[in-house]
Design a binder for these strands. Structure first.
Lengths: 213, 213, 213, 213
DNA sequence: CATGAATGAGTGTTCATTCAT
DNA sequence: TATGAATGAACACTCATTCAT
């Protein structure tokens, strides 16, 4: 019975749970209404806490967004890197797995805001202040770029295509708009959509004359 | 000599020119700073008119955005429809022309905000209030969808791919993020990027054994 | 009938009157409640305008205080310098006139806040941000110091006393606390108090054995 | 061996020491930053206790200030009264001793805030709520006033001067502003300044033709 | 008793919108 | 019609105070 660690860890646990709850709620409201249309008051109200409590966890609304971005990016990056470093798979297989990851269950939950951020000039302004966010994102794109280059080197992908173009298009395979249209309105399954997109994309970037033949 | 129409039409012309100028300026500022970070004051100042004058043309900031959206959509739609109805071209050729249109010069000027709008939850909220905007956009997508279906029917495109998926990806070929990265940072020419994207896309959606062999 | 200058000057006049009114009111409330206990809301309410209107004239609460300080300091300085440069008077006569000025009618109106500012650590913090304010004050003290030195040189004042000590005490002859006690509570006339203070002060700093005798 | 009083008195001692420490610290911070710019958090942090603990000793921030005021006033009053009742000294000698007391070491530590309080409207508002404080101060001024009257009666001081004016000026000999300027910036020794001030003051209020004549 | 997380009223500031001139 | 001063609702953020642990 450690009298000092137990309470501390309990308090700490409480604290972290609350922080996660704030983040989760903030993400929901940000996604629903957008960053500027969301007030700290509303986030607090939805969590069921007082406004001031939010500020015990995040020093400003902006930092709340940054924390959210970090949480999601780290989550995604670690999963993506796990896939990227899995042995015995071709670059294409890895990228396809990543696409499914991004488009699949995860998407619904964590990447909506995340994608919106980079597409919106609203956010660019904010992001320029917080260099770290750009760095995180850079980590992800760097990882993808290497896979693409690897695939080109291995003769899987068309070597004439600039890697940056392939990367850009790969990132655009996933989009909030597309998701909502295809999954939300048309009723397609995320995995199905991902499969189609992969099919088009990888066929599109495939090397001209596959090895033999 | 209609003493009332002549001056009225001159006044009217002045009025329309001013309105166009406001729209143009608003678009620039919105693109630079985002909708919420832009104040009516700044738009008016850049145009060189008083804040109140903006309200003589647009009843609210929101309506200014809607008008902007309409202007751009109509512009794009008319150009796209012109291409779509040009005779003697295959669906692929038409779509490729449209892609170049979207990615080319036009993009820099008119479609930045426009694309951001649909990717950002910030804007979705605003736009849901104005049903008409969805209609405009629907007109465009419908037009593209028909071209894609036409291509499938003609055996140009893989008939197994859902048209909606092809459409979604086609729309995603163009993105602000991608444009900035490839054209702005990497220094590629817009037309070059568009060519690469078209190459990947159309190869990706091509029918399996085209000619018959 | 100048159609362009008249309206401008009228507007401008309105504006300046309003600004003066805000300053006046702010001074009253600051004096009554102190800087921190005063809200912009209250100032606006007392003036009878909306809160936002205050911000059309002063960019922040702090700047409102600075403007107030400037207004009063400039007023005082110009009057003090007028006295200091009046010909044919001894240093003592000039300083005595200044003392009467500070203690007299002016005091009631303009210098209350002003004196409080320098005595309060609350304000020191603010003042450090706005160097200009210190400069203004320095102008005043410099002027007084010269008069004191002049008096010493002329054999009017005890040359053994450090000028800085004489200056410091001269400034302390006037005090909010003293004013309130003597004039407010005891019912003495300001001019009478000033006369007594001058009598004590100038006798206290007088040169030991005046010339002859 | 009273098992309840002994630990209680020990606890009580602890408690009082802590209370004194809080007061001391509060005074320092109040002097540095001013009352409003100081947060309970900072005081607690400097003492090394939790914020809530401060509230076990003082029911509010305001009461903390009042307690501080009381502590300092009582301290000063007791010392001043000790001087005032010391036998065999003239009124002037006593007042001179008091002046040195106020200006000397003590000043640096205990009277800064104390003087600011009466000069600042910020504080007047607060202190008017606590009548007792005025009483304390009244005790001190009463004591000084008696010494001045005593000196007048003894023929030391000019009998034509209103005692209240002499009192007011005596209180103003000491000032935060003056102290900082003369001791802090000019580098004069506090005792030296006090000597100069005494010299001026007592010469200024001296009876016309003292001993002989 | 001591703690410090939680509270929520209060405040400075912004800015879309209105309207008298 | 064009103006821009005036408005006031909205919001981020602070901090004295409370209270469950």
């Amino acid at each position: 019975m450690p009298p000092s660690t137990a309470p501390r860890s309990w308090k700490e646990k409480q604290r972290q749970e609350r922080e996660a709850l704030i983040l989760q709620t903030a993400e929901e409201v940000f996604c629903e209404k957008g960053y500027h249309e969301t007030s700290i008051d509303e986030i607090a109200a939805r969590v069921g806490i007082a406004k001031g409590t939010v500020y015990l966890h995040f020093p400003s609304k902006e930092d709340l967004l940054v924390a959210l971005f970090r949480r999601d990016t780290e989550q995604v990056i670690s999963e993506v890197e796990a896939i990227a470093s899995s042995p015995g798979c071709s670059a294409r297989e890895k990228l396809e797995a990543i696409l499914h990851l991004l488009y699949g269950e995860l998407f619904k939950k964590r990447t909506r805001l995340f994608y919106s951020i980079y597409n919106s000039p609203e956010m660019r302004v904010l992001l320029e202040k917080k260099k770290e966010m750009g760095d995180h994102w850079g980590q992800l794109t760097h990882c993808l770029e290497e896979l693409l280059a690897e695939g080109q080197a291995a003769g899987e992908f068309d070597p004439e295509l600039p890697t940056s173009v392939m990367l850009s298009l790969f990132l655009n395979l996933v989009s909030v708009r597309g998701y909502e249209r295809l999954v939300g309105q048309e009723g397609l399954a995320p995995a199905e959509v991902a499969r189609y997109l992969a099919r088009i994309y990888f066929k599109g970037i495939a090397a001209e004359h596959k090895p033999s033949c």
